[in-house]
Design a protein around this nucleic acid. Structure first.
Lengths: 243, 243
DNA sequence: ATGTCAACGTAACACGCTGTAACAGAAGTG
DNA sequence: CACTTCTGTTACAGCGTGTTACGTTGACAT
């Protein structure tokens, strides 16, 4: 892993240089900035591992900037502010900040919190965010998310119905996570009408059974699409994703 | 996405129930625990999304527990403590905690910080959620944690029910440690309803009996799954773990 | 030893959950 | 329209799991 590159955003030059110096002395690369425009320039120019963002930036507002950035990017953000009241902190967390540090702060503690957030981000980002149109492989099967069929380990092409395909996508997007019938219904329901979740009956069970009969070597003893008695279903195969 | 499952670890029953209630009322599943042993039982039995860990736990120490857990697992951990001095906070971050909340805390702010840590962790894919599925060997038996069966010393394949598998995992995670029925119930409990521990009756005894009948050469005189009269059960076989 | 009593093992039972065959609409296709 | 395919419903059988009841075991006091 290369040296972490941090963005220090503060409109007070003295504070800015104090923080960048502190970070540089502790093994980070610290890039100064003082406006949203500069932040965006840095983000598009090169890799940024974490942003230390002051809340009060003259005529700009760190909270709003954070909210906007979060909508577009996954970059870790730590808000820094002299506003330390609980409701102000909560506003920060609400717009997706990873931490909120009150000024004045203990430099060593700030470093520790920076490291903590980066550690968590690094562990998390090790796998790319999973989209449903990618190609999935599991247990010899190949599933191209764009098509309503999949390739068996033996090379046959197995046709799936529309609804079976949708179920498979839900399962592949939530591997190793037990899904209740309600959750599956909600995920399959494109309209958002949650009212009809009552009228589902045993439809999900049937759907699961039919998918099993197509992809399980022995549908009586399913290895991938398993039942969690009293809960729902869980996809228990190792999955790799491409593209 | 299924409901987040949190572990609330505190030795003060009042604080513990306050926190679990608060979390439950806000859409989380909160499982109470009060010792490292209980934490490990929960971790081995089911998915845990985040641990709220008190630092002062009677004779145990949350910092040490956090350090040990971090070495083995990737589960997000938030330390909670009345010790709020900077050097104490830093000790927490140093052992890999994701956040450090001082007691007393603002409930809403705590919720916000829990959400922030989980959000960051959740961008990860299944990796964080994937159960540890080691292969265990004991007394000639081979148990692949991914499957609901195990290989006998003679080479037969013995099928286990899901609940029997869960019990076996709890036992294997706590070898040579006597487990009370309550502890086993807590470890097996997936719902988070800690109230119904009363209504368990003799279910655990039956479960143990059924597992014995499958894996003990002479179920009348169990060698591995032994009874600790007046206490509970203890797994007394030598275990080796792989992978 | 012997009696007492609580803890434990387990057979028998009850109940709810799940798998699936059979059927019935619904929706497309010619 | 006839025909096929997909999808949800119903009914029933089988299985997993908790409860009860009763016999047995073990600890302890006398």
């Amino acid at each position: 892993m290369s040296i972490p590159r941090l963005l220090v955003v503060d409109d007070d030059p003295e504070m800015r240089s104090m923080m960048t110096q502190l970070l540089q002395q502790n093994g980070f690369i610290a890039l100064p900035a003082s406006s949203e425009q500069e932040i965006r320039a840095h983000l598009s120019a090169g890799r940024i591992d974490l942003i230390l963002l002051d809340v009060m930036l003259g005529d700009e507002n760190g909270i709003d900037i954070c909210a906007r950035l979060r909508r577009e990017q996954d970059v870790p953000i730590i808000l820094v502010s002299a506003l330390s009241a609980d409701h102000q902190r909560m506003a920060g967390y609400e717009v997706g900040a990873d931490d909120y540090i009150a000024k004045p702060f203990n430099p060593q503690l700030m470093l520790a919190r920076v490291r903590a957030v980066m550690q968590r981000a690094r562990r998390s980002s090790s796998l790319a965010y999973r989209r449903r149109t990618h190609t999935f492989r599991f247990d010899g099967w190949v599933f191209d998310g764009k098509r309503d069929d999949l390739h068996s380990p033996e090379g046959y092409l197995v046709a799936l119905s529309q609804r079976e395909t949708a179920l498979l996508k839900v399962l592949l997007a939530n591997p190793h996570i037990p899904l209740t019938r309600d959750e599956i219904v909600a995920a399959l329901d494109v309209t958002g009408d949650s009212d009809k979740s009552e009228a589902q009956g045993r439809a999900i069970d049937m759907l699961v059974g039919r998918l099993r009969s197509k992809i399980e070597a022995n549908p009586k003893d399913p290895q991938m699409l398993r039942t969690e008695r009293g809960v729902g279903y869980i996809f228990a195969a190792d999955i790799s994703v491409e593209e």
